[in-house]
Amino acid sequence: MKTFIANFKKYQFLLAELTKKDVKLKYRNSVLGFVWTLLEPLLTMIVLTIVFGTLLNRKTPHFAVYILTGRLLYTYFSTGTKQALKSIRRNAGMIRKVYVPKYMYPLAASLSSYITFVLSLVVLVVVAAVQGIRPTVYLVGAVVPLATIFLMVTAIGFLLATLDVFFRDLEYIWNVATMLIMYMSAIFYEPDALLKSDYGFLIRYNPLYSVIANFRNAVVYGRPLEGFYVWYPIVVSLVVLVAGLVFFYRKQDTFVLYL
């Protein structure tokens, strides 16, 4: 453990550099640059609000903010895990030539997506202000889902990154999986009816939905966090994190043979 911390300190700068690289390269060579991060969720929010607002005949107040909160968290979940999944293979050139602690790659992938995500929250602030949502004391609670989702993405990232070294088709499988998870996360509909049905468990035990629900409690409704939705995703994430790390550490020495 002591050597681990010493090693981490030694390579801290590398982690920063790798994270910076991912963030920087995302916006290089694009005309809109960073504006794109803000524009993209805004545009999808408008489309979804119009389509589902009309289609489902929504009378829900702040439906746009409702969609935007779910959409932003889901986008981080999907891009973060996908980046982490590819992180080992994308850096194959380095892994084969220079020794660095390999956990840096998935961690940097998760971190860099998180930074983009946090920056994109600016849109949420603007839209919420426009829709007339006033911040309450419960807004502080938003920190919990925001931290939980980072933990969740990092945990899943380690697991996926390890598997991806051995199975190249995982990328496509995960693409399908994230899409299914999206439909089970109540991003553009209200889950009340579904939760009461026989299929309620699909949403209730989806840790991503827990995070989204609590984030909405804090931001949109100005309500206290719901207990189950606090501890449940944290427990799931920790279990996955431990499993992912154990798996990663067991297999990391063989990565170089498969890359």
Binding site: K10, Y11, F13, L14, A16, E17, L18, K21, K24, L25, R28, N29, G93, M94, R96, K97, V98, V100
Partner: peptide, 23 residues
């Protein structure tokens, strides 16, 4: 081997240097 093609030479100095464990 650890160079990033999209990066400028300057940025690569820091990236590659970090990989070799320099501060």
């Amino acid at each position: 081997a650890g160079f990033e093609n999209q990066y400028t030479g300057k940025e690569n100095v820091f990236l590659y240097g970090a990989m070799l464990g320099y501060k």
